[in-house]
Amino acid sequence: MKKSKNFFPGNLKFLRERKGLTQQGLATDLELTRSKLNALESGQTKAPAPEDFLAISSYFGISIDSLIRVDLRTLGELKLRELEAGNDVYMRGGNLRVLAISVDKGNQENVEYVPIKAKAGYLSGYNDPEFIASLPRFSLPNLPRQGTYRIFPTVGDSMLPIPGGSDIITRYQDDWTALKPDTPCVVILSGQQDFVFKLVTVQAEGQLLLRSLNPIFEPFTVPVGEVAEIWKFHAYTSKEIPEPETDLQQLVRAVRDMQLEIKGRKR
């Protein structure tokens, strides 16, 4: 039985402290008692009254859905300002939404595996908790406590020396603008009904540059509007031992890097 996380208590305290308010100060503004506000922040009130949700949502300018289901502490300042301005859209693509997850009996997030046969279904069900709950689920050791992880299989040899058929362990990337150039990521492309494993660079003109590790493959760009999700590379598993690059591959890579550097200087 899947169980959704409730971030409301932590979000309420975070938003109050972000505004530099004491509990008494916020309670006065909301026309609540300090003890009631303290109970809301500490999670002692399991079912807050609808009017309290409405008052808090109106006060901070953030939707009730986001207050409950999005961990606001993980968002950057720019996205918080976007929320407060009434714009529930991530900058440079990606709607602000709740990431569907599944949890184990201890209420710890699972690591879902998206098999090749589920590729098409993932594009239509990636934000559907029932679909996510239907995926194979694992608990992997040594993963950081913070973050949501998912495993995607690779096909082809565009990311050699990481061989095709590897399983890529990834972490959900909600802030695309925080990606450093050439960050390896699995990118979910809604326009192409596919996901790809590439080196990702966010460009100022609203495009993502996607580049392969294998220099034989040409880099290409996609509009951020075609990107549904980005999952940052964490690790991979494979039955094959990667082979070193050949001299030709190293030469092609050097030429490709030089071309990209020259192209960047001309902008």
Rank of each mutant, 00 (worst) to 15 (best):
L99C: 04
K5I: 13
V89C: 14
L199V: 03
Q192F: 04
P115F: 04
P136S: 09
V202A: 14
Q23F: 00
L40A: 06
G76M: 12
G86E: 03
G94W: 06
M1E: 15
T183W: 05
E51Q: 08
S58A: 14
T33N: 13
K180V: 08
I56E: 10
G25T: 05
S158H: 00
E31W: 10
D247P: 04
D29N: 12
A178G: 03
V155M: 10
F7M: 04
G93V: 03
L179Y: 12
Y90A: 05
K46W: 06
V98I: 07
R34G: 00
L67P: 03
W176F: 11
K180Y: 07
P244F: 01
Q250Y: 00
L123G: 05
G10V: 01
K180I: 03
V255I: 13
L67E: 13
L75K: 07
L140T: 07
T33A: 15
P153V: 05
S139D: 15
S102C: 02
I101C: 01
L213E: 05
F220R: 13
E109A: 14
N110C: 10
F220V: 11
A27V: 02
D257C: 08
Y59K: 13
K5C: 07
F195E: 11
N110L: 08
K180E: 14
R73V: 06
T45G: 04
V70L: 12
T33I: 08
V70H: 05
N95F: 04
M258V: 07
V70R: 08
D174I: 11
A228H: 00
P161N: 01
K79Q: 15
T201L: 05
I151F: 02
P136C: 08
K105R: 02
L75A: 00
Q250P: 09
Y113C: 13
P161E: 11
S166Y: 06
E205S: 10
T170W: 07
S124F: 12
S4Q: 15
F53S: 09
E112L: 03
F60E: 06
L123D: 01
L72C: 10
L12Y: 12
P184E: 02
P129G: 01
V224T: 09
L210H: 11
L143Q: 00
D71I: 04
K5L: 10
V155G: 12
G264V: 01
V227R: 05
F197W: 01
E82D: 15
L123Q: 06
S63P: 09
S134F: 04
V222D: 07
L143N: 05
